[in-house]
């Protein structure tokens, strides 16, 4: 019950903060000389009038982010497993993941433009952005599997692959899902930035074209949509992670 009250308090304060921020925003937009900042009214109108365009763009971006998240997750989980079973591989793989996290996507974009199909750039960028959180969590998951259970399976004749399928993957799953939850904003960020490089549709395209053409209402409306979409997808994954953890008898965040 205190947890429920705490969550209700946080939600209320969140709503109050949002209302205060919107009020400050409106005052700021209506202030003299702030032509660059769109008023709430203009943003609301644009969200309603051009909802078909915005929803279609959001669907494209979400699709790219989902594909990138899937690719990044597969890559990160395989890397985490390799780090776990191969002596000496952990350090270089950790460095590789850190480099993925630190690589400037805006600098990678022009290089990818010259080498791959432009439609693939958002997916590649999303995969790169999502890799580190999933790798860290999956690595912790493979490490959390009890040695005794491994020994038990080995004694019963299970080889490396059977141990992986029967014990290590199920054991690491709640951790990996927790990592995927944290990778969601990264995947969306990668898809959005990837769309700045010659792609024809998506929220990232609208964001940049709005900025270049001075349409601050479009920039703001797309930003609002990005925040809402990201929060909703994150909440969805958080719920999935909680369900998996509850079924496995794990309480709280696993990482």
């Amino acid at each position: 019950m205190p947890s429920l009250r705490r969550r209700a308090g946080t939600s209320l304060l969140g709503l109050a903060s949002l209302a205060a921020a919107l009020l400050v925003w409106d005052r700021f937009a209506s202030g003299a000389g702030r032509g660059d900042v769109a008023s709430l009214d203009a943003v609301g109108r644009l969200l309603v009038d051009r909802h078909e365009l915005l929803v279609a763009a959001a669907a494209v971006t979400l699709g790219e982010a989902a594909l990138g998240l899937l690719t990044g997750t597969v890559f990160a989980v395989v890397a985490a497993w390799a780090a776990h079973v191969t002596a000496g591989a952990r350090g270089p793989l950790q460095h590789l993941m850190l480099i993925c996290y630190a690589v400037p996507l805006v600098a990678l974009g022009p290089l990818l433009t010259a080498s791959v199909d432009r439609g693939a750039i958002p997916v590649i960028a999303a995969a790169i952005s999502a890799a580190l959180p999933v790798f860290s969590s999956a690595e912790a998951g493979f490490g959390a599997v009890r040695e005794g259970l491994r020994d038990l399976l080995t004694v019963h004749g299970a080889g490396r692959w059977r141990r992986l399928v029967l014990l290590e993957v199920p054991g690491a799953l709640p951790y990996a899902i927790d990592g995927i939850k944290f990778a969601v904003p990264g995947a969306l960020l990668g898809a959005l930035i990837g769309e700045w490089f010659g792609v024809e549709r998506g929220l990232g395209v609208l964001l940049v074209s709005g900025l270049r053409e001075g349409q601050s209402d479009l920039v703001t409306a797309v930003s609002v949509l990005v925040v809402v979409t990201s929060s909703a997808v994150y909440a969805l994954f958080a719920r999935w992670a909680r369900t998996v953890q509850r079924r496995r008898g794990i309480t709280g965040s696993v990482t």
Binding site: P185, L192, S223, V226, S230, S231, Y234
Partner: peptide, 10 residues
């Protein structure tokens, strides 16, 4: 945790 702030630079 849940918002890609860098994408909001515009």
């Amino acid at each position: 945790r849940c918002v890609p702030v860098l994408a909001l630079s515009p």
